[in-house]
Design a protein around this nucleic acid. Structure first.
Lengths: 150, 150
DNA sequence: GCTGGCCTTGACGTCGGCGTCAATGCTTAG
DNA sequence: CTAAGCATTGACGCCGACGTCAAGGCCAGC
């Protein structure tokens, strides 16, 4: 399998694969023509990387999983280093979520306060009335009843 | 007040202030020597920007607040556009938190599974015994008792 | 006069993870 | 023969929010 096919099968691009190679995540054989050659194990490796990246791992953090696979283990997370990486990421995620929640609460509070003050400002304005003038009988304002007293 | 003092008072750097100016967030007067000159209102404006950036607003998103302050309102969030910006960011934060929670749960599940399988592998391995050899009498391995049979 | 400290503009560097050329080579089908 | 479609290396572009350096002007104090 050459790079184009692998990229297609892995749902990525050749550029990405060459980049991974440059980072040492992909080890490459070459055929007689100088073309990169890959096998099914590379596909598995790429799927592993993609899953992790979807979970917020940056590329470097996938390395333990990659090395684990390359060491012949059935899955990328069969090794202690991978478990450690999981735990680290988990802690990071928890921290991140907590921080974001704090921020959200702050923004929520700011919004609430700003809305209240905005309402206060409109209240001190001449209070636009949405009521219609009373239909029934005598006018409260003391205006002359329509077509009377002439 | 010149740029250095403003930067110090706002807890930031002159580079940042010049950058804000280049983005049109800071409007500048110049003195006779060509130096930038600032007033207290610029300090308030900077504090507003800093608060928002701490809450995850990118620079461009602080613009409504800045314009609100410059329009003479008492706070940056006295204007409808600012309230809208709050609501938008709030929604973004909620989305972001939800996504992160999903990711965290996935990672947690992956870790749990990997831990179980790791434990399973150690179980099928030759079970490293942490017991000491029995003190009492006859050796199980059939080795010659120490200093005997000579 | 010199040093040190403030200011000016301009421009390049950073970080991650690739995207997007450009110039060139190998192979195969028409 | 030629075009199409794969491959190769190398190098610049992008994004946001600045950091950092260079080269120079202006001023105060010793």
């Amino acid at each position: 399998m050459r790079i184009g096919e692998l990229a297609k099968r892995a749902g990525t691009t050749t550029r990405t694969l060459r980049y991974y190679e440059s980072r040492g995540l992909l080890t490459v054989r070459r055929d007689a023509k100088g073309y990169r050659t890959f096998g099914e194990e590379d596909l598995r490796l790429l799927r592993q990387i993609r899953m992790l990246r979807d979970s917020g791992f940056d590329l470097e953090e996938t390395r333990p999983f990659v090395e684990c696979l390359r060491a012949g283990f059935p899955t990328g997370d069969s090794c202690p280093a991978s478990l450690e990486a999981y735990r680290k990421k988990l802690a990071e995620l928890d921290d991140c979520i907590t921080q974001l929640q704090d921020v959200r609460d702050r923004v929520r509070a700011d919004l609430a306060r700003a809305e209240v003050e905005s309402a206060a400002r409109s209240a001190e304005a001449p209070a636009p009335r949405c009521e219609l003038a009373p239909r029934t009988g005598a006018s409260v304002t003391g205006e002359p009843a329509e077509g009377n007293t002439t």
